[in-house]
Deep mutational scan, measured.
Amino acid sequence: LQAFIKTLTGKTFTVEMEPSDTIENLKAKIQDKEGIPPDQQRLIFAGKQLEDGRTLSDYNIQKESTLHLVL
Rank of each mutant, 00 (worst) to 15 (best):
I44L: 11
E24H: 11
Q40F: 09
Q2D: 05
I36W: 14
I44G: 02
S57Q: 12
Q41G: 02
E34Y: 14
E51N: 06
Q31I: 02
P38N: 06
D39E: 14
P19L: 12
G47C: 05
D58W: 11
T66P: 07
I36C: 04
T55N: 06
S20I: 05
R42K: 12
K33D: 03
L8R: 12
M17H: 04
V70E: 11
F13A: 01
D32Q: 14
E51L: 09
K11Q: 08
T12Q: 08
N60R: 05
Q41S: 03
T14W: 12
K48H: 11
G53T: 09
K48I: 15
K33W: 07
A28V: 12
Q2H: 12
G47Q: 03
D39P: 06
L1W: 09
L67A: 02
K27Q: 02
G10Y: 03
E34Q: 11
E16G: 07
T14E: 06
R42Y: 12
Q2M: 13
V70P: 00
I36H: 10
D39T: 10
K6G: 03
K63H: 15
K29A: 08
Q31N: 09
I61W: 08
E18Y: 14
R42D: 05
E24Y: 13
P37A: 09
K33C: 05
D58F: 12
T66A: 07
F4V: 14
E18I: 10
Q49K: 08
F45Y: 13
N60W: 06
T7D: 07
L8H: 14
S57N: 10
D52E: 08
Q31C: 09
K33I: 15
L69W: 00
A3S: 03
S57E: 11
L50Y: 01
T55S: 10
D52A: 07
A28G: 08
H68K: 05
L1R: 05
D39F: 10
G10V: 03
N25A: 14
F45T: 03
K48N: 10
E16S: 10
I44F: 15
D58M: 04
G53D: 12
L71R: 06
P38L: 13
L56T: 03
I30K: 00
G35S: 04
T9K: 11
T14R: 07
N25Y: 11
F4S: 07
K27I: 02
A3D: 03
G35P: 02
R54G: 06
L56N: 01
P38V: 15
N25T: 13
K27H: 01
F4N: 10
Q62P: 12
K6L: 08
K29Q: 07
E64Q: 10
D52S: 07
L67V: 12
G10C: 05
I36E: 01
Y59A: 03
S20A: 09
F45H: 10
D52Y: 05
H68L: 15
G10R: 03
A28I: 13
S20N: 13
Q40A: 09
T12V: 13
E16W: 14
N25I: 14
L56V: 13
G53I: 06
Q62W: 09
P37Y: 04
E24G: 14
Q31D: 04
K11H: 14
F4P: 02
D58H: 08
D52T: 05
A28M: 13
V15D: 00
Y59F: 04
E16N: 11
I5H: 02
F45E: 01
E34I: 15
Q49L: 15
G35D: 04
V15W: 02
S65G: 08
K48Y: 08
A3Q: 04
I23C: 01
Q62L: 12
E18T: 10
F13V: 04
L43K: 01
V15I: 14
K27S: 01
T55E: 03
T14V: 14
Q41I: 12
F4D: 03
F4L: 11
D21F: 05
K11P: 05
I36S: 04
L43M: 02
G47L: 02
I30H: 00
L69V: 06
M17K: 00
Y59N: 02
V15E: 01
D39S: 14
K48R: 11
Q2R: 14
K27R: 05
T9V: 07
E16Y: 12
L67H: 02
N25K: 15
K29N: 03
M17L: 14
T22F: 06
Q49W: 13
I5D: 02
R54F: 13
I61P: 05
